[in-house]
Design a protein around this nucleic acid. Structure first.
Lengths: 255, 255
DNA sequence: CAGTGGTCTAGACCACCGA
DNA sequence: CGGTGGTCTAGACCACTGC
């Protein structure tokens, strides 16, 4: 293996150049299921093993590379699986943890344009969007009203799917390879309209969480979502500390 | 400076022993406002500089020690300042960011017992508690109804404070040295009662966040808090990604 | 067994900061 | 200027893994 060139006159540290180089090669799909050892990298780039370790430190901490004593180093299986996260996941997971089976009733599942949503996704107003509207149930009781818009150019392969029992994100990953890796959401407290109360089958004195979410994959907007969650039996729960920051956890068993 | 002993026969790495040793000395209050350099530590413990750096790596990443080129290394000013965090802080900070001045009207501020709250704090039912009830305003508009209980044995020094314009946590830290470092909270969506609507001066069609929080300092329960926040103009906002996890951010300017 | 990563040493040069 | 941390080298020994 010929020695690859690193710039030794510029001011950028060797380990950072090496780290960038390795990230590029990882993105390019090199090293699939096989990653070179520290010695090999040191020789390939003509640097010391210490420098290689410094370059690898962050990659290992970020879980992009798995290396253990004795084992062959590997690239991490799917570093960006990020289907579960956010307030919605927290809410639904707590229901699951309580032993309630969940499923959905698909109300609408088609392709359409929506200027307002398109703008939020950063797209032209007339861009065709896959639209999915579901009523989510826990046990036999309605839990949430869920509406999702995705760019049809990316998401049209999911149109044939049965989303009554499978996760949208799982289906999206399986059919298009797209995995959400970043998102932004806001949570409002609202009083459901009469129509929403009717769909959710809840009393007139029940409030709800209104959650808007914009999700990205590789810095491209992929999903705009609006979900209305019954507030009478479901709550957000979080723990926080100086070291771990703010972390949503599963709610304790419903009152 | 005599060389301090590290165990070179056991299996525990030198850098880990050194790290533990330094943490102990930090907790003991040594190094106040002055921390030894890498060379000094290497000589003091009879190890190489590399080993010292390995031991310091995590301490620096955690922000317990501040070291820069050329500067004298220091211990971080207050590693466990954790007053701001959680949904409440997020909500109030977004109001502040919008340029609205905030203050409180103290409705009640005394010492009493409350069996229900005491239980949640893990205390005997008859334990005296400092009780503070405030109406929080943003501009001249009511924003939240805030009720806090703290064990009187810890918090009685704050009883003389004017909490109309200063933070409870700042006052608590100044008068008792107690700084909250961990907490747990749950957020519900509710419809305010008529009395609460009246206090918050909000319309009948407005929902609210109901937030319960249990805070700790050094693993001891210190605060039980219940806050009711108007839901019409204030929302929780969060960002999340694979690398940074879930992080509450300030809401965008209110609609 | 050969190869892996974890640990450790003893040097070195440099950019940067404060006195 | 002396001392700091950042970077880098060229070694070494070891525990562990898989063949």
């Amino acid at each position: 293996m010929a020695t690859r060139a690193l710039d030794r006159v510029g001011s950028e540290p060797l380990w950072r150049q090496l780290q960038r180089e390795l990230l590029n090669r990882l993105d390019a799909g090199e090293f699939s299921e096989q990653f070179p050892g520290e010695m090999a990298l040191a020789e390939e780039y003509g640097v010391s093993r210490h420098t290689v370790r410094q370059a690898l430190r962050q990659l290992r901490a970020d879980g992009m590379i798995v290396a253990e004593r004795g084992r062959q180093p590997r690239v991490a299986p799917q570093p960006e699986i990020q289907q579960p996260l956010g307030a919605l996941y927290s809410l639904f997971a707590s229901v699951e943890a309580a032993g309630l089976p969940q499923h959905s009733i698909v109300r609408t599942f088609d392709t359409r344009a929506d200027a307002l949503v398109a703008e939020r996704l950063g797209l032209e107003a007339s861009t065709p969007l896959v639209y999915l509207e579901r009523l989510r149930l826990a046990g036999d009781e309605p839990l949430a009203l869920d509406r999702v818009w995705l760019p049809a150019s990316l998401a049209s392969p999911i149109l044939g799917a049965d989303l009554g029992h499978t996760s949208l994100y799982a289906e999206l990953a399986a059919r298009t390879g797209i995995r959400l890796d970043r998102g932004h959401e806001d949570v409002h407290a609202v009083i459901p309209t009469a129509a929403e109360r009717n769909q959710l089958n809840c009393a007139h004195d029940v409030a709800a969480f209104s959650i808007n979410r914009l999700s990205h994959a590789h810095d491209r907007p992929v999903e705009w979502r609006h979900t209305l969650v019954r507030g009478d039996r479901y709550a957000l729960t979080a723990e926080f500390s100086a070291s771990t920051g703010y972390r949503l956890v599963q709610s304790p068993p419903a009152d």
